[in-house]
């Protein structure tokens, strides 16, 4: 059994133009490892949404990616304001993104719902005023919800 590969990324909250860079990097690595196209796509979309969320709502954070043969786990942790009502935040179309972010085409209220849709497991831990940690898992064989 191969050891788990771990990649760590700092997501810069002050530089909106670089948001999404870490998920592109992860996509490249998964391709080099030889994962199938569908797995790579699910991981990169879910991680991309998570990265954008951290930049929009929490001034950045960190992303840790763990690659095992059968599972890819991503832990996105920020020190932002926290999510007051998770079930509301999970509703498609619900967004608290500010206007200037919406002007860029974000803030459609699909971030968290897409992360759930494209992954096999998702866990949100949030403390108001302290921050949010979202853990998502994509199984590479079977357990495919799509």
């Amino acid at each position: 059994m191969a050891e788990t590969l771990r990649f760590h990324y700092e997501v810069d909250g002050n530089n909106f133009t670089s948001a999404g860079a870490a998920s592109v990097e992860v996509k490249r690595k998964l391709r080099q490892l030889g994962f199938d196209a569908e797995t790579i796509r699910r991981v990169s979309i879910a991680m991309y949404e998570g990265e954008i969320n951290m930049v929009v709502h929490a001034r950045g954070g960190s992303a840790d990616v763990y690659v095992d043969k059968d599972c890819i786990t991503i832990i996105l942790a920020d020190r932002g304001p926290g999510i007051p009502d998770i079930s509301l935040a999970m509703q498609e179309g619900y967004s608290t993104a500010p206007d200037n972010i919406r002007a860029l085409g974000f803030g459609a209220g699909m971030g968290l719902p897409n992360m759930k849709r494209y992954t096999d497991e998702m866990k949100i831990e949030t403390v108001l005023g302290k921050g949010t940690t979202v853990t998502i898992k994509v199984y590479t064989n079977g357990a495919n919800k799509l």
Binding site: M1, A2, E3, L5, K29, Q32, L33, G34, F35, V67, K69
Partner: peptide, 8 residues
């Protein structure tokens, strides 16, 4: 995949 992961 195991070999690829070791190389990575």
């Amino acid at each position: 995949l195991t070999t690829a992961m070791q190389k990575m």
